[in-house]
Structures are given as C-alpha cells and as structure tokens.
Design a protein around this nucleic acid. Sequence first.
DNA 1: CAGCATCCGCCTGGATACTG
DNA 2: CAGTATCCAGGCGGATGCTG
Lengths: 120, 120
Amino acid sequence: MKTFLHTGVCPVRDILSRLGSKWSVLVLETLHENGTMRFNDIQRSLGDISQRMLTVTLRSLEEDGMLTRRVYAEIPPRVEYTLTERGQSFMPVLSQVVGWAFEHADDILASRAAMQTDRP
Amino acid sequence: MKTFLHTGVCPVRDILSRLGSKWSVLVLETLHENGTMRFNDIQRSLGDISQRMLTVTLRSLEEDGMLTRRVYAEIPPRVEYTLTERGQSFMPVLSQVVGWAFEHADDILASRAAMQTDRP
DNA sequence: CAGCATCCGCCTGGATACTG
DNA sequence: CAGTATCCAGGCGGATGCTG
C-alpha cells in the first residue's frame, strides 16, 4: 500500500494551504485579468476585502514570488502589483480548478443539502 | 476593469477552502492511489493525522459527495471509504495543482528565504 | 475497530484607528 | 494613497479519554 507519510514540512501541502487561503485566488485572478494594478484597484475589484487582509495576502504572494510589488516615490504614494512569470504559470492550473469547482458547484451544494435533511 | 465582487456565498471559494484544508488533498490522493480503504488504513497511510481530524475530513468530503462511506454491521466494526465518480473527476485537476506545486516548490522556498535575509 | 466528547491553544481574519 | 498597529472573536486543529 502506498503511503503518504509527511513527517516534517511538505512543500506541496504548504503551498496549497497558502493558495487555499481566503483571498489568494481572487487576488491572482484579478491581476491576471486586469494586468498591473494599484492597491486600491485590487481592493475595489474584490469588493469586500479589508485593507489588512489585502496587505497580508499581497505580502504572502510576493514572498512566494507570485507577484512583484513596485513602489513609486511620489506623493501621494503609488504601488503597483504585477504577476510574475511564476504567477502567470500558475494561472492555467488555477483555471482548471476553478472550472471544476464551478461545474460541480450545484451538485456539491445539493449533496450537502441532502445530508442535512437526512440527519435532522 | 473586471471586478470580482463576491457578496454573499461564492461556491468556488467555498469549495476551494474545503479542498485547501490541511488534510483533504492527502486523503483524496491516498484513496485514489489505493482504492477502497478502511479508516485505519487511511490513518496509517498518512502517518500523522489524528483520529479526530481524519473523521472530520472524511465527513466533510462525504458531505460534498467526493467519497462514499460504507459501514458493515460486524464486530469489530468495519468502515470502508471509496472515491465517488465526482471525487475521481477531481483527481486529474488536483494532479495538475500538485504537479505545479512540486515543480515550483524549490524556487518558492528559495524566494521566501531570500525575503527573510533581505529584511532581518 | 472506528469512532464521539471534551477541552484548549493558536492562528486566521475582521474592525478600528492612526501615519508617511 | 497605501499602508501599519492594535485589539479581538471565532474557528481550525491537536491531545486525551471514553464507547459499542
């Protein structure tokens, strides 16, 4: 039997947990769709993300080399975010996942609802 | 500019957050690799998952119709878990993600390390 | 064997206020 | 404009003990 022992750090699990974090996928998608964007552009495009969480998410994605952060020494300040090649390379993969989730969303929600009514 | 407003529940985000949970991917993979498995088989194949979290993860995947849970009225009890068609259909997509993460793991970890040394 | 119940620490994520 | 700082609630996940 094949085992999946993961004593210590599993890089795949680690990376997936970051990308599974609440906002990462949406940030990546809006950058992919719109190209280079400023902080407030991103925030407006997502609608309901707090400043704090956007900052945290962007920093995390920057750490992983998924996007670049360019600061312009102007007043008022301007900071632009752009997907790196690494970030771009992830988008087709991500689209597959989002596509699958979108296709099966109705069925999955139906399954959950059925479970609930079975066990009241 | 394309927006990603998600007022209310976004099914894609919801599904991704479940699959991004700590153990789901590993449970799906071991079932895909080994076929039908019993509770303890799964636990041993993953190595370091607690009983509680395995139960929680299996229930969640069952709720979403990703696997079936068959209970045999025997003593000692026997419970077998098998991927459903829906679960199977997700595996190619998942493989893509895992493959990408595996390929880029070294580079990503290197990026993080570089960030750390830049800002001590 | 395959769990459920309980307790509990930690981290994620939200709200708010302040700054260069 | 683009953050940082602080506080705080809730949920995730771990450890332990008990059961049919």
